[in-house]
Design a protein around this nucleic acid. Structure first.
Lengths: 157, 157
DNA sequence: TTAAGTGCAAACTCTTTGCATGCGT
DNA sequence: ACGCATGCAAAGAGTTTGCACTTAA
């Protein structure tokens, strides 16, 4: 069984450019062409809060009458992850989550199991600890995932 | 899209009983019946080191002429996870990993992206930090995942 | 005896890919 | 016009489920 080569929780460069110019013809970084579909995805990512799956984002696009194929959503998100422009993480359920960088700093997430509400939490100490532990064991090219799950106040009542 | 209800990284009770008696008829905890198949899975888990996917474990069982269905492997592993007798975690690739508890303490994992080599690391400070952060935000029933990925010394040369 | 356990096949979910068509540049 | 981008459909991977058969207790 192949262990997939995959960068995990890359420390996002997140060159967040002028987020004010939320026009459709905003350029997509590191990509040759700017199409309507990509602009739609970018526009959506700029508006939504927290993490969403590719499927969720696709549904939202359809709901706002933005005709974009699911395949394109996946492909665009992958491009953005590769470019370091969005964060991606994975739910214990196995679903991949994507999110626009809201902060230039690296951070982790506190996610409600029921409603998906996400709180961003910074854990600089954890970062250092993780890198240090990995280095101690001779590991290089280190990344990590840290997600905290629970039931938020709203959902638990 | 439903957010799956799933306990994450449960603090394992891991009542590790006499691991010496690696006989086939060893009892499975919290389960009514002890079948040949379950004994085979348990015996295998006692012998292998580190994390393996359900599929990998199934292949190993077949290799040792233990006729066990993949379905049964999945079901047995799930039972063991529910019973707290094995750890499970999820690879960024989305594959579920299962492992016999090697320590009674809660711990996390440093995994090589290339060869899958796993080093167990304890992070008591991280535990406390995670629980505390979640509590501060009103979250209950808190669990977390923390995996560190990198390229191990062997694979990087 | 009888209910839990098994295993095959099929269903399911999420994701990726092949390929003909569409559309920036 | 050229070639990347799109999107449908189909393939894949991993996991779960329905259901008839088997078997431990």
């Amino acid at each position: 069984m192949a262990w997939r080569q995959q960068a995990v929780c890359r420390r996002s460069a997140c060159g967040r450019r002028d987020h004010e110019r939320a026009t459709v013809d905003q350029a997509m970084p590191n990509v040759t062409r700017n199409t309507r579909q990509r602009s739609e995805v970018l526009a959506l990512l700029r508006e939504v809060e927290g993490f969403h799956t590719a499927q969720q984002l696709h549904q939202m696009l359809l709901a706002r009458n933005a005709r974009v194929g699911l395949t394109t959503v996946y492909r665009t998100l992958q491009l953005l992850v590769d470019a370091g422009d969005i964060d991606s993480t994975r739910l214990p359920g196995g679903e991949q989550l994507y999110r626009r960088c809201g902060q230039s700093k690296h951070h982790h997430h506190l996610v409600c199991r029921d409603c998906g509400r996400t709180v961003e939490v910074a854990g600089p100490a954890v970062e250092r600890w993780a890198d240090q532990v990995a280095a101690q064991h001779g590991f290089t090219d280190v990344g990590h995932t840290l997600e905290i799950f629970g039931t938020c106040a709203q959902c638990s009542r």
